[in-house]
């Protein structure tokens, strides 16, 4: 909301727009408007979650296998990073309500810092996917010839997933990583998982993974690819929302810097806060649903 209004006879206060009688009416309208915007955001992401729900319930093992390629350490770290940024965002509102300019500025800067950290970690993860051939589009992955040494973007960390840890270990040289055309690839571990869970497969899995009675790696790969497609769309859209959020924060920073907000006028801070928290909430669900869903299959 802009901080000025057209000159008008009802001009009582800075920040009051001409169509309203008083600040209370304006604040009410703006906050209902923001909440309705969030409702539409929820339905927007809701479509994605429906897609997730349908495919996950059709192909649970493929999803578990795909999920085990994700790095729960980075995912978990990012969850924490976002939670901290949510705290600093909440504190921004708190200080804006008290008209404390300096603390507002500090909190906004911190929020932006954590937001940027989140995006940085996402970039690391995406690079890792690129290096390991798990970007679902053929040709969009790193192309490695026979004999070339694969690079591992991620270091081996305590929570590193079993799959990528196995690959990263020195012994992994037995299965040299070759991907000449940068296609989407799955590993033997994934196929092992189907064998391990053979007795609990659903009807659609039995049709979806097998040709007749034999496990068909190509068909199974297609289902894991669907997991990664959903992963990239969901996290990508979430990251886009983060970027928009950072834009909002930059604007807020400038406003706070010029001392715009006070106990009487802090709606822009509060509204941006709602948006930021919403983006955090989406991640709260994405983390377990994408990163952790197959974890308990690893024995």
């Amino acid at each position: 909301m802009a901080s000025h209004a057209d000159t008008h006879e009802h001009y009582h206060q800075p920040g009051l727009q001409h169509q309203f009688e008083d600040m209370k009416q304006q604040e009410e309208s703006v906050s209902i408007g923001m909440w309705l915007f969030l409702v539409q955001e929820i339905m927007f992401f809701g479509g994605l979650f429906t897609v997730y729900l349908v495919f996950r319930s059709k192909f649970p093992i493929a999803f578990a296998a795909g999920s085990n390629h994700l790095d729960a350490f980075w995912g978990g770290l990012n969850t924490l990073v976002l939670i901290v940024s949510s705290l600093t965002m909440a504190l921004t509102v708190y200080y804006a309500q008290r008209g404390n300019r300096n603390m507002q500025v500090i909190m906004i800067v911190l929020t932006m810092l954590f937001g940027a950290t989140f995006l940085g970690v996402k970039a690391i993860e995406y690079t890792d996917k690129y290096n390991h051939g798990t970007i679902p589009v053929d040709g969009w992955n790193k192309k490695t010839k026979k004999g070339e040494k694969p690079e591992h973007a991620s270091i081996v960390l305590p929570f590193e997933t079993k799959v990528s840890a196995a690959e990263a270990k020195p012994g992994a040289e037995e299965h040299p990583y070759v991907n000449e055309r940068g296609v989407f690839q799955i590993t033997e571990h994934d196929l092992e998982l189907v064998a391990q869970e053979k007795d609990t497969l659903t009807e659609s899995e039995r049709i979806g993974y097998y040709s007749g009675d034999v496990l068909d790696p190509a068909k199974f790969r297609d289902k894991i690819r669907i997991f990664f497609w959903i992963y990239f769309v969901m996290t990508g859209l979430h990251a886009l929302h983060m970027i928009i959020g950072l834009g909002l924060m930059a604007w807020l920073l400038w406003k706070a810097w010029t001392n715009t907000f006070s106990a009487d006028y802090y709606m822009p801070v509060e509204m941006s806060g709602l948006y930021w928290h919403f983006v955090d909430i989406v991640w709260i669900f994405l983390f377990p649903l994408l990163y952790l869903l197959g974890r308990h299959f690893l024995h």
Binding site: A72, G76, T200, F287, P288, L293, R295, H296, F297
Partner: peptide, 28 residues
């Protein structure tokens, strides 16, 4: 967040298939 992580490493499928997801969603 930490609870979500550790809950996910325990195999709860013996209760009923999908119990892990249920727990994760409750925490979320």
């Amino acid at each position: 967040t930490i609870a979500t992580y550790f809950a996910a490493t325990i195999d709860m499928d013996w209760i009923f298939p999908g119990a892990n997801t249920l727990v994760a969603l409750i925490i979320a």
